[in-house]
Design a binder for these strands. Sequence first.
DNA 1: CGATGCCTTGAGACTGATCAAATGTAGTGG
DNA 2: CCACTACATTTGATCAGTCTCAAGGCATCG
Lengths: 251, 251
Amino acid sequence: MKPARHAIETGRRAKNASASNQPGCSDCDLHAMCLPLGFSEHDLERFDALVEARLPVPRGGTLFRMGERFESVFALRTGFFKTTRVASSDQRTHVVGFHMAGELLGLEGIGNGCYTCDALALEDSLVCVIPYLRLEAMCREIGELQRQFHKIMSREIACNHERILLLTRARAQERLAAFLLNLTRRLQARGDSPAALVLRMTRHEIGTHLGLTLETVSRCFSRLEDAGVLQVRQRQIHILDRDALQGLVHP
Amino acid sequence: MKPARHAIETGRRAKNASASNQPGCSDCDLHAMCLPLGFSEHDLERFDALVEARLPVPRGGTLFRMGERFESVFALRTGFFKTTRVASSDQRTHVVGFHMAGELLGLEGIGNGCYTCDALALEDSLVCVIPYLRLEAMCREIGELQRQFHKIMSREIACNHERILLLTRARAQERLAAFLLNLTRRLQARGDSPAALVLRMTRHEIGTHLGLTLETVSRCFSRLEDAGVLQVRQRQIHILDRDALQGLVHP
DNA sequence: CGATGCCTTGAGACTGATCAAATGTAGTGG
DNA sequence: CCACTACATTTGATCAGTCTCAAGGCATCG
């Protein structure tokens, strides 16, 4: 088991990143969804001290890799990530999840002491490094933090159940519709338009995420465009008829 | 949101079940996988007091239902459960997971304050009811408990990732092979034979769990029997060639 | 012994995978 | 700025795996 190297190999310097010119949690507008939700000013300051570094990860850079020793969880401050795993059977890389600002990465590493997937930046990102041992200790001191941490882990489980349900029951078009709705819903919670989005990932990445081939994904996009539900121009997607899209998921 | 009623509606009496004649955690041989893993004698006693009831749930009984208010997590002491959800699209019930002794149920309820699936006993079971608020408080006092709780949540996430991977990449036969290997591995950890098992669930339940129809499940069983990998007699399964089964998952 | 639910097996339909080719886009270096 | 390359996307034709529908066999339980 190799030690975690964060994004160092990508040419970034983790330590420098924690320099004092970095803005802390108080300046971050992600309170509403991140770990320090509903904190008092005082607790926020304590939590702020817990964050080891604000680590920039360039597009294509790696945050952690499967098998590395687990030491920290990561809060995504800005940017966009994918987590991937190589399937033991076909040796192909599958996308486990896509992650955006305010979300926590690396939680699945706590159980076995090592990360079980790779985390790759799909655009230039800024990540808050939260050493797990310190987080654990602070959870014992700040009840709000403990509660919020448990909620986040629990929601992760519930979301995975949703995805499993989608994969076991839904046809290609329904999967893609649900994927787009999920994505826009999360983006909307961050202030983006619910009707327009720019995909950060390729058709192939969407495909492995949904259990489809890239050709099928492309065809579904085309079909939804023909039906007047979407406007598709490469990765620029406009949702013209959100109700229709929703209807594909709940017929 | 209705209040949780545990298995009361099935004709059981939750409160009686907590009578003093019930054996505590000290007598339970599931330490090795349950919450109080590696506890000192003293901590074990404290944790024991936290368990509100040892609740019997008869076969077919309900432990909790989707939408009920979340109040407790449940440790399965003996027996076998399935958790299910009704897919919003096709209105059909899908099996989210199967659960056996030593496993925790209800974790996905923490995030939103209500359970997000139904939990049904597939055989007569005994369940330890652990009120979440008290668990939270005790996690702040017993570091070992906190760590173990986080590990269990984290493993749940990692296991779900495994399943998602299986559903996105694998063909029917591979899914069934992986399912059987997973089941026997978990049973083996509890002292059962790795070569023989009695399925607690129907072909249809396996099917919805794996994203297949019951006919496909049945055909896969037959094919694996013809290939000399399994011996199948209704729900009695003998694994004749474990390597071959493993080979289907890692070709 | 009949009834019920569970399981097996077969035939045909359909979805999505695979293979193949053309087009589009971005990045590179002359 | 353009030619060139690598990669991403679209679209078509064919094929395989799984679903659906249907029928019959097999256990269990009253």
